[in-house]
Amino acid sequence: MEASKRERCVRPQRAARGQKEKRTTAQKVVLWVVFGIFVLYAVSLLIPFLWLLLNSFKTRLEFSAGVVSGNGGLSFPAEFDIANYYEALIGFRVRVGSGESASDVNLLGMFGYSILLTATTTFLEVFFSAATAYVMAKYDFPGKRFIFAMVLISMVVPIVGSLPVMYRFMGKIGLRNTLPGVWFVYVSGFGFGFLLMNAHFKGIPWTYAEAAQIDGASHFGIFFRIMLPMSVPQLLSLAIITAIGYWNDYATPKIYLPSMPTVAVGLDSLTKEIQKTSDYPLMFACMLVAIIPILVVFACFQKAIISNVVAGGIKG
């Protein structure tokens, strides 16, 4: 009975959504003009990468010849040679660190550092965001409002100038240039993930927990065995979006972990080194290799990523 009532309410809404708006000719013209502008903007976003792709297969001489002829690299390579990609991934190295701890790292090594840093930090951030959000959403305790207010203030009020003090503090406690140090800087439990998970946990009925309590489950048991498994899709979505942020981040690993250059950090050094040799096709190959993992993840989880950004933005 309830279900059929709901159906009756939902159907007209769905029909309304499915129905195409009737538009005047002027409105149709406007939409097509806008479509043209949108296409141009989309092309402007794609062209730089297509240009990099085309030229990444060229030899240095071929690219230089194109530049001299004034075609701006807008020509197909004589041969689609992947030598630049091999060189970008394995061959070309940059020196990191100084003194005895100095070492040469290639892009493959940087991928390793990025994977290690991104995987561990994402796991910790998602776990602490979920734990904090669950407690704040489901328990009423003294100081809860104060904590919530402080978190919101810290998100809204921008205080700059603390970077040198934080850098000094990390050195003092011996966490500078260590992986746990970067975990400490990144993982807070109060951030975008907290807002997202807080809204999610608020939406889960407490009756699940009550049923488990009757069966003798503890508070930890309810959280780990019931609430977290029920939130796997949200946790995965959050993990993907958090991981992309950590993978792309430049400043934190650059400042706090210089001995382990991630792709974002190392790419900057790599391209600066390559520019000295004017081997631009190699540089283009490096840049493209660096974004392949992100593009693959985006292609696979595009809907989850966009919907989470939207949810986080609106709830935030």
């Binding site: 903007y41 976003l45 391209t271 840049m287 985006f298 595009q302 966009i306 950004v309």
Partner: peptide, 13 residues
């Protein structure tokens, strides 16, 4: 999707 691409790519690239 295309417009969102700059948001997921590293700023350096």
């Amino acid at each position: 999707v295309i417009y969102f691409l700059p948001s997921i790519l590293p700023v350096v690239v």
